[in-house]
Design a protein around this nucleic acid. Structure first.
Length: 334
DNA sequence: TCGTCGCGAGCTATTACCTCA
DNA sequence: CGTGAGGTAATAGCTCGCGAC
């Protein structure tokens, strides 16, 4: 697990994030986190939109957390599903039907009646129940009142649910119905989100068509997904900062105690502390004395294992910031 | 060049529905 | 069977960027 914290300079995302993300993806390790406070986020929006044309961008750069599943996530799911837009490496083609890994034996989901599709221009081209539809995916029906589709999908459970809900369908259409996405749809959207956490209109339309959803549904899903991600980031941020606070409090308490011990030592042995000031200069990163003299006393003090005076110079300290350069003392310190 | 307007997109807060313990 | 909690799809309202004028 690698943690990084940055306060104040939101314009600079964490350089280590990319590397850590890579590691996390490749090895399924932990999570990484970066935090930056002080940005309004709009500049990042602009950048995102500029990159939206196909580049993978991260949402909300000032707060970057990688909370992806710890288990290795295949870049291409076992089903070899292909996203409806060209990937960064151009490996997937738009509308690559049959590569989704889902049986192409039916439809569909949450598909509104034809008349209802008109609210989103992109979804009006195909009849949701038509076998000749260009929609490739076989998603179980979860929408109330769409029993026929669900049965066609062969999913008895979903069909039952849809059937049971059909009875409470509000005929006047005022009641807002919950359109639960199928697992396949959610999984595909999730994979899409990993590729692009924002969608341009073309991607949205393509994804909607491939998933047999309305573009608005895809849009809402991504919106909610981003919100969930941000919420989790915030939770982890809070947890991390809480730990930082606890650690620093503990460190502060320990330093006070150490100071008292030193003062007591000085009082009892006034000659002990008559060392050159440089003797106690410590490397802030590795806790080792950086400048030593040749006196016997100093050598003793510089020895991190020395307990001759009842305390050690090596004490665990908490530094939330990682070294920008490799710590030359790290191997020795460990 | 600057101001205004319309539009599109994203974000946040909230609601409404659904599932499950 | 009723109920509350949690998850999530959907909505509303807002801000911001951008292009047209």
């Amino acid at each position: 697990m690698e943690l990084g914290l940055s306060l104040g300079d939101a314009s600079k995302p964490f350089g280590f994030m990319d590397k850590t993300r890579e590691v996390a993806h490749n090895k399924g390790l932990g999570f990484c986190m970066g935090l930056s406070i002080g940005s309004n986020g709009r500049e990042e929006d602009k950048e995102k939109r500029e990159k939206e044309s196909g580049k993978r961008v991260s949402v909300d750069p000032p707060v970057q957390l990688d909370l992806l599943p710890l288990a290795p996530v295949p870049r291409n799911p076992p089903s070899q599903q292909a996203f409806p837009w060209p990937s960064d490496n151009g490996s997937s083609e738009a509308g690559s039907s049959g590569q989704m890994g889902f049986p192409a034996r039916g439809f569909d989901v949450n598909r509104l009646p034809v008349a209802e599709e008109a609210d989103d221009g992109a979804a009006v081209s195909s009849s949701p129940n038509s076998a000749a539809s260009s929609f490739q995916m076989d998603f179980c029906i979860y929408r109330s009142g769409n029993k026929r589709d669900s049965e066609a999908a062969g999913n008895d459970v979903e069909a039952e649910r849809a059937s049971s809900r059909a009875s409470d369908e509000d005929e006047n259409g005022i009641t807002r119905k919950k359109l639960r996405l199928s697992k396949e749809q959610s999984a595909f959207l999730e994979e899409s989100f990993k590729e692009h956490n924002t969608l341009n209109p073309k991607q949205k339309l393509a994804l909607a068509k491939q998933l047999n959803l309305r573009p608005r549904q895809v849009e809402v899903w991504f919106q909610n997904r981003r919100a969930r991600t941000k919420l989790k980031q915030t939770e982890v941020d809070c947890e991390y900062l809480k730990r930082c606070c606890e650690t620093l409090t503990e460190e502060n308490r320990r330093l006070h105690k150490e100071l008292q011990e030193l003062r007591a030592l000085k009082t009892s042995n006034p000659f002990y502390m008559q060392l050159p000031a440089t003797t106690l200069t410590m490397c802030p990163s590795c806790e080792r004395v950086a400048n030593t003299t040749t006196t016997t006393t100093t050598t003793t003090a510089a020895d991190p294992t020395s307990k001759s005076n009842g305390f050690s110079l090596t004490r665990p300290r908490f530094y939330p910031f990682s070294h920008s350069q490799p710590n030359p003392h790290q191997s020795a310190a460990s």
